[in-house]
Design a protein around this nucleic acid. Structure first.
Length: 897
RNA sequence: GGAUGAUUAGCUCAGCUGGUUAGAGCGUUGCGUUCACAUCGCAAAGGCCACUGGUUCAAGUCCAGUAUCAUCCACCA
């Protein structure tokens, strides 16, 4: 006999319990093996935690991710698998740097990078990242995540840096990484390139200007960005366009366009030009539009860069405009065109503006010398497949399964549209590219460098010959000169996080972890980073290791607010997981994120939902409290006891069924269904019926002990804290539920004979009927009255459970009879029979309708012919059952008269 | 422009390969302080499963189309 406190107080247990788990070392599979908790040869189950960005704190999305993954980790650990869940954080290059810059600006610095210099600035970033990291780790622990902290990784630590340098060298040597002068997405605020999918589009209305380059120019063009026309080298028309056909191939000289540079405009044909848009003619600006750039390459047109990395007009080709920002230049061009009667039309039209996904600044496409990865080039070491093909194959041949399946389509579509991946970034926080240049080998004069000092900024130039090396070379391998310097650029953050599943396991070293735990079992993450990250991991891993990074991809949805809006600080609708944990406990918070949603779909979260699960947590606590009061001496490894009564048989059978279905649901990644199933068993079956019966029957120590052990184990992956807390109340401070073995369904309780189960269900049905009758007749539930039961062919069963029926239906007297209605109340006159008659009539009508439906179905020859036997039989059984029920009701109805 | 998802009870959502009178939680209504729990119990009400066709003995479930909403991708200058 143990007695728990009346209500569960999460605060009194959670931190202590987490500390105990952590101190036990059992998050580490090696320790589990050493302590004999897991067998040495057990199958392994491994996951890499999607590393949260060190840009701040965790939100509900992270909490959901941690909860789902922890369910899997704990389930597999209890099942006896060697379970490894590796934690870590992501340096999130641009995101973190931007964040720190903002903080420094808020502190009063005007231009932090310039004022501090690379080294000091990076120190600031590191400080911030460290703080953020600590917060995140603490939050992961608060969520109860059973992560193996001894293996914690950071995308920018030394081990990961080695992995990055190694794979860069591999790819370079395989000819997959190249340096090129290409149009890139340039963010003039971050002063860096962005990958294609780091560009976002914002709807806006823009002014479209229609004008001619010059007075004698025969064709007018339309554009939203007149200032870029300073760099036009061609005009494209559709070859089918009769208006302009005659001009194709001609070259027009435009003197001093908009008071600026002279232009040579060649008229070229392109199918891509829409004849119906604007004037049907497109001014081609090869340097500042990707489409135009491609057109220029096809037609061998010159590329004139007129906007520089600072977002200002460059001097080379744009006299009179040099140094103006794009905005200023636009105003000036427009003014000129208006004043010189070249402007034909100005109109507002909807338009998509491309902006930086980090800072929202409009993107400036411009040509620049950058590092790229070929996605279409055949790779010798991989059967001449390209990276694209490797990525496609992994999913197409089902080595990787994406859950839910529909994301396959999105994934393939993305790959089809994939262009070479620009991996160099002009920011400081990140993996510096493992490339060095020798100044002695290069002709410095031609680079515009006169004298080399420590602080010399060397312009980006293809004239610098790259020396690619895993470790920093001391001298130039060609000329032995010591004046070499490392490429100042850093790598796209996804380059390093793409290695995550194997870099965290020790690659490029041939580690045991890599051997044991790679490929990982599951990658659980949000669908919003399917392209950014999941696809890149597949790319990197299939290339580097020739194997997949994970077998399953489980994609969860976004956590939204009650109204379905994204949670954001500016909207003020953010629900902080830590607040919820403080108010309602971790288990309630976890359940609210685990139950009531399906993979790939967004979920709406409200505080009320969490309150509901807090109530359930307390319910479980009190169920345990009651059970413990009726268990003599709890035993941890109690065997299933022999059931004595109908109720015992029923609950033991139900228990086996729930064990089986929870297992099936979790194995099929239906975490919500498993949780609902468990909740239903716990509340509707165990608490509402069995425990009530137990109060009557008494002496249930063994059954209760067995059921409670099973119950706590089954709930543990979902609610680790409350279950562990109860477990320790039961079995002392040394016991750890987390590594107890997962329950197995036992055939003897339900395999052969469902009869036992159905028997108690009949008792429950009778009790419900009596309660219903009392309610219908306006008798207070607590008021004790008498009742008559027609025993039919169930005399033994009913008499055997007489006390239960009396107690649960609150009867003072129960008589068994052999005729009349199934159940009748001893009403002692004075009761409103009209109400009861109406109720019966309604029910009879409904049953009649149902009977007719069934009869029609069975009379249908087609149905009998075509439907499977079992279905037909089932329908026949249904009909018989309904008919007999109908008879009984009609008899009752008659009796009332 | 292309794609995907959603549309089921007042609200939030389940419903896997088509086969019980379509389910749950919350909320609502009525009754209730039975010695685990009012963070509770008992009971009830509430649904042409968006719409229109089709396939089938049988459709919430499969197919086609329509509408509304959401998201993603591409981007037209």
């Amino acid at each position: 006999m143990k007695e728990l406190p009346k209500a569960y107080e999460p605060k009194n247990y959670e931190d202590k319990i987490y500390k105990k788990w952590e101190d036990s070392g059992l998050f580490n599979p090696d320790v589990c093996v050493k302590k004999g908790v897991t067998e040495k040869k057990a199958p392994s189950f491994s996951m890499a935690l999607p590393p949260p960005n060190v840009t701040g704190t965790l939100h509900m999305g992270h909490a959901a991710m941690l909860a789902i993954q922890d369910v899997m980790a704990r389930y597999h650990r209890m099942k006896g698998d060697k379970t490894l869940w590796v934690p870590g954080t992501d340096h999130a290059a641009i995101a973190t740097q931007t964040k720190v810059e903002k903080l420094l600006v808020a502190k009063g610095l005007k231009n932090p990078r310039q004022e501090l210099g690379r080294e000091k600035f990076l120190e600031e970033v590191k400080k911030f990242a460290q703080q953020s990291h600590d917060t995140i780790v603490n939050q992961c622990k608060k969520m109860g995540s059973s992560l193996d902290w001894s293996r914690e990784a950071f995308t920018l630590d030394e081990q990961r840096n080695l992995a990055v340098r190694t794979i860069f060298k591999m790819m370079y040597d395989d000819g997959l990484i190249y340096r090129g002068y290409r149009i890139v997405n340039w963010c003039p605020h971050c002063l860096s390139t962005l990958a294609d999918d780091e560009v976002e589009y914002k709807e806006q209305t823009a002014k479209i200007y229609t004008f001619k380059y010059g007075k004698d120019f025969p064709i007018a063009i339309s554009t939203t960005r007149p200032e870029t026309k300073l760099g036009d080298t061609a005009l494209a028309v559709n070859p089918k366009d009769k208006r302009y056909k005659k001009y194709i191939g001609q070259v027009f000289d435009v003197k001093k366009f908009a008071g600026g540079p002279d232009l040579k405009i060649k008229v070229v044909a392109s199918d891509e030009v829409d004849m119906n848009f604007g004037t049907g003619a497109l001014g081609v600006t090869p340097a500042h539009s990707l489409v135009d750039y491609e057109m220029a390459q096809k037609n061998k047109l010159p590329i004139i860069k007129i906007i520089g990395e600072d977002g200002k007009i460059t001097g080379d080709a744009s006299k009179n405009y040099e140094g103006l920002t794009a905005k200023e230049a636009r105003r000036k061009v427009v003014e000129y065109l208006q004043q010189n009667n070249l402007m034909e039309k100005e109109e507002e039209a909807p338009n998509n503006l491309s902006v930086c996904y980090r800072c929202g600044t409009p993107i400036e496409p411009l040509p620049s010398q950058q590092w790229f990865i070929y996605v279409n080039k055949p790779i010798k070491a991989r059967g001449k497949k390209s990276l694209k093909q490797l990525m496609q194959a992994a999913v197409k041949n089902k080595k990787i399964e994406i859950i839910p399946e529909r994301f396959n389509k999105t994934y393939f579509h993305w790959i089809d549209n994939l262009r070479d991946w620009c991996i160099s970034r002009q920011i400081w926080y990140g993996h510096q590219i493992p490339v060095w240049y020798c100044l002695s080998c290069a002709e410095l004069d031609s680079l515009g460098v006169k004298q080399v000092t420590g602080e010399t900024v060397v312009p980006r130039s293809e004239k610098l010959v790259p020396i690619v090396s895993i470790d920093a070379p001391e001298t130039c391998p060609k000329c032995d000169s010591q004046s070499i310097f490392q490429d100042p650029d850093t790598l796209d953050t996804w380059f390093s996080s793409g290695l995550w599943t194997f870099s965290t396991l020790g690659w490029p070293n041939k580690s045991e972890d890599l051997e044991n735990y790679h490929p990982t079992s599951v990658m659980e993450t949000g669908y919003d980073i399917l392209f950014f990250w999941v696809a890149r991991m597949i790319l990197m891993t299939t290339y580097a290791l020739g194997e997949i990074p994970f077998e399953k991809v489980y994609l969860h949805g976004l956590v939204r607010d009650e109204q379905g809006r994204k949670m954001s600080k500016s909207l003020g609708n953010v629900i902080d997981p830590l607040d919820m944990i403080a108010k309602y406990g971790t288990d309630a918070t976890r359940l609210s994120l685990l139950v009531g949603n399906t993979p790939g779909n967004d979920m709406k979260l409200s505080e009320e939902k969490i309150v509901g699960f807090r109530n359930f947590t307390n319910k479980l606590w009190n169920i345990s409290r009651f059970m413990l009061l009726n268990i003599d001496e709890p035993k941890m490894d109690i065997l299933a006891p022999n059931p004595k009564t109908n109720a015992d048989k029923w609950i033991l059978a139900k228990c086996q069924i729930v064990i089986e279905s929870v297992k099936n649901y979790i194995d099929r990644y239906q975490f919500s269904s498993a949780g609902e199933e468990l909740r239903r068993f716990t509340w509707d079956e165990l608490a509402d019926w069995y425990l009530e019966a137990a109060k009557v029957e008494g002496e249930k120590s063994q059954v209760l002990n067995f059921i409670l052990n099973t119950l706590l184990k089954l709930w543990h992956p979902y609610m680790p804290f409350v279950t562990e807390a109860i477990w320790q109340e039961m079995y002392g401070p040394v016991a750890i539920l987390m590594v107890e073995s997962w329950p197995k369904a036992l055939d003897e309780f339900y395999g052969q004979d469902y009869g036992d189960m159905v028997n108690f269900e009949f008792i429950a049905y009778i009790v419900s009927e009596i309660r219903m009758l009392k309610m219908e007749k306006g008798i207070e539930p607590a008021k004790k009255i008498g009742a008559l039961l027609n025993v039919g062919n169930k005399e033994k069963l009913l008499r055997g459970n007489e006390e239960i029926i009396k107690a649960l239906a609150r009867l003072e007297k129960l008589e068994f009879v052999k005729s009349g209605a199934e159940v009748a109340l001893d009403l002692a006159g004075a009761v409103d029979t009209t109400k009861e008659k109406a109720r019966l009539e309604k029910e009879i009508q409904e049953l009649k309708k149902y009977t007719v439906g069934l009869e029609n179905k069975l009379a249908n020859k087609e149905f009998v012919k075509n439907a499977p036997k079992e279905v037909v039989e089932k329908e026949q059984d249904k009909l018989n059952e309904v008919k007999s029920k109908l008879e009984k009701l009609q008899q009752q109805f008659e009796n009332l008269k």
